[in-house]
Write a protein that binds this DNA or RNA. Sequence first.
DNA 1: ACGAGTTCTTGACAGTCGTCCAAAGAATCG
DNA 2: CGATTCTTTGGACGACTGTCAAGAACTCGT
Lengths: 210, 210
Amino acid sequence: MARANPIDKHDARRRALVDSALRTLGELGYAKSSLREIANNSPFSHGVVHYYFQNKVELIVYCVKQYKAVCVTRYDGVVADSTTAAGLVVAFANKLCETIVDEAPMHRLWYDLRAQSMFEEYLREAAHQIDRSLEEMTWRVVTRYADLAGAETALPPLTVYGMLDGVFQQALLGYLSGQEQEALAMLRKQVSELMPLTLRSTPTDAPGVA
Amino acid sequence: MARANPIDKHDARRRALVDSALRTLGELGYAKSSLREIANNSPFSHGVVHYYFQNKVELIVYCVKQYKAVCVTRYDGVVADSTTAAGLVVAFANKLCETIVDEAPMHRLWYDLRAQSMFEEYLREAAHQIDRSLEEMTWRVVTRYADLAGAETALPPLTVYGMLDGVFQQALLGYLSGQEQEALAMLRKQVSELMPLTLRSTPTDAPGVA
DNA sequence: ACGAGTTCTTGACAGTCGTCCAAAGAATCG
DNA sequence: CGATTCTTTGGACGACTGTCAAGAACTCGT
């Protein structure tokens, strides 16, 4: 047996390969990312991929799942640090803009992979899991927002995620099309418009059940 | 010179080729649609593509633009025929569900191409034009909705399109993942939830300017 | 320092891709 | 009808793909 348990080293290499693959995927997109190109942007040669992964599909699925890990907690700081409803909206919008600026390639990769999952079944489960995670993440923001506003939520989690995802996607597209500042400004405005719509007007006493 | 003007025949062939290409693209997605596969699903051989189009890119761009033509008027009947605000919402939701059922491959192709446009610049302009058309189409529905409700719109066109596009995309993904009925029912619910949010509570007299 | 086990490189393989081209076929004219 | 142009075919090309296997390079307990 090797000194350091070989499982860890194996997994570490896998993660390194997946990291390189994610960089390439974010740059070229799913369609044009060949295993050779992925290996070229890594310290390894193209053959090593099949030593750590059975085939390209397995690598891609691992990429998707690793991508998920960096996503799910992105706005938890906003949730934890905000003390007023209005402050949360601004902080949330700022964080959304920040992640567009810092990680645009990863975001377009996500939308690419989700679109591919409409054609290729092997991506569906992984994409669905990420969608669920993003929905839950969004919902944590909105419920905290409702708490701070002393109001109740007016829309189900899936709907809130859907509409915010729509405008985020829009902003990302605009940002990548060269209209960086306009897209970010518009996103800020849209978030401040949409967040209040997720709350019911009546703060505490709701009609209906006694 | 030929009897019937050859321009028309040339264009007719182009349209036929583009139609075949759109069917194949909707079935396989952008990444896996080769010119040979496109030609196989058409009455022609693979070489003829380069007689009517300079290269694959030109064909794809023509496909995108032809796809746009069938989109832009999809909900104009709803706008024209509805007589009440509530009726319009139901008719709109029905039409959205109908087009998911009838044209799911085309819709997933659209989201695929829009995602590709984040990587490949040559698709950007065409994708942006379609996005604008869809935004205008959505806006015609919402302004008519506001008219029928005797209210004013509360959100700008881009925001309304963004949030509706988000939930539509969600429904399409669910529909293609085997949850047909749940996805359509959810979309109906979401549309009836979101449409009222596009209107200002105050119907006629707004505060502010005299 | 040797040898066994692990890790990585390299080259080859069978396909497929977009593109091009020579030649066959079809259509239309004088 | 022959002649000219337009249309279409199918094969060929070089480049690229995922996959695999043989062997070199490395690691590490002994």
